[in-house]
Amino acid sequence: MPNTTQAQGTATPRIGVLAIQGDYDAHAQALREAGAEPVLVRKPEELAGVDGLIIPGGESTTFLKFLERDGFLGSLQEFVRSKPTFGTCAGCILLATEVRHPAQASLGVLDATVERNAYGRQIDSTIQTGETRLPGGPLEMVYIRAPRVARIGDGVRVLAERDGFPVLVEQGHIMAATFHPELSEDRRVHRRFVELVRDWMARASESNRQSDSKTS
């Protein structure tokens, strides 16, 4: 195997943005600003070349229609089990272990119960500023027909809340937000995810090197 370890320490991560539908352009722009190279993913085979993935906002029912075809759901499930993935709004719904209102299929990698449209319709959409455990002070949060995380498992770390419910969470290599950080100017959330991807890349190359040295 060629030794790419040295390059990977500083390499720009290639991060996929699921581009079936939704605000994938806004995420692509946010990733560029956070120091990553975005890659639009519309077909299962396009997951092969990326180090991480963002599942954007949009309509989760529409995403599922596409995922039901051509083995996309299986490929995506395999990806999100092992590689860093960040879901916002509809993306958060897809990552959860349980979806309510109404119940629907999901990838089941984030130990959480998520309720769709829990705050009402568009007229109830809102922009708030709230506390976060991310360094740098309060964070603007854009909620659009937002879901609510009604329950989380023990392994889920809460980075921000709204009225006592988690709105930004992490669980290992998974991140999820019920709001839209891609629609704010503050890039802290995307930078956090790019960091997660970089850490994952460093660990992956480390384990590659170890297995290389064992075989040689």
Binding site: D23, E59, C89
Partner: peptide, 9 residues
Amino acid sequence: GLAEMLKGG
């Protein structure tokens, strides 16, 4: 923002 969410659809 809501219009953004409908893109591609």
